[in-house]
Amino acid sequence: MAHNCENCNFRAHYDKKPNSFLGKFWRWHINYCPGWKGYFTSQSEEKKAELRAKYNFTKY
């Protein structure tokens, strides 16, 4: 299954303005999004570490 997480508009908004409402919403959303889970778990361990650090993500 292809994931569009690399091109997600909400993710881009978070990257630009993480403290905005949409940025905070996206960050909360990735804890529950099945698309993000599929995207995240399909990445290499190096990429996962990068994403964990960038988004303070520890769920998977």
Rank of each mutant, 00 (worst) to 15 (best):
M1Q: 11
M1R: 06
M1G: 12
A2P: 04
A2S: 02
A2K: 02
A2V: 06
A2F: 08
A2D: 04
H3D: 13
N4L: 12
C5K: 12
C5M: 14
C5S: 06
C5Y: 09
E6R: 13
E6S: 14
N7T: 15
C8P: 06
C8K: 03
C8V: 01
N9Y: 14
F10G: 10
F10I: 04
F10N: 09
F10A: 14
R11N: 12
R11M: 08
A12W: 04
A12S: 11
A12R: 15
A12E: 15
H13K: 15
H13M: 15
H13Y: 10
Y14C: 08
Y14K: 14
Y14S: 13
K17H: 10
K17D: 14
K17G: 01
K17E: 14
K17Q: 12
P18V: 13
P18F: 05
P18A: 07
N19T: 15
N19H: 08
N19P: 05
S20F: 09
S20I: 11
F21D: 09
L22D: 15
L22M: 11
K24H: 07
K24Q: 14
K24T: 07
K24M: 14
F25G: 03
W26N: 05
W26T: 08
W28C: 03
H29N: 13
I30W: 00
N31S: 06
N31L: 09
Y32G: 04
Y32K: 10
Y32E: 07
G35D: 08
G35Q: 08
G35P: 00
G35T: 12
G35S: 10
W36R: 03
W36S: 04
K37R: 10
G38C: 10
G38Y: 10
G38L: 11
G38M: 12
G38F: 08
Y39M: 06
F40E: 00
F40Y: 15
T41P: 00
T41K: 07
S42A: 13
S42N: 05
Q43Y: 02
Q43L: 11
Q43N: 03
Q43F: 00
Q43D: 02
S44T: 15
E45Y: 03
K47V: 15
K47M: 09
K48Q: 10
K48P: 00
K48S: 02
A49S: 13
A49C: 01
E50M: 11
E50P: 08
L51E: 08
L51A: 03
L51I: 11
L51K: 00
R52A: 04
R52S: 13
A53D: 12
A53K: 14
A53C: 01
A53L: 07
K54R: 07
K54F: 00
K54S: 04
Y55L: 01
Y55S: 03
Y55I: 01
N56M: 02
N56R: 07
F57V: 03
T58I: 03
K59A: 05
Y60H: 07
Y60A: 04
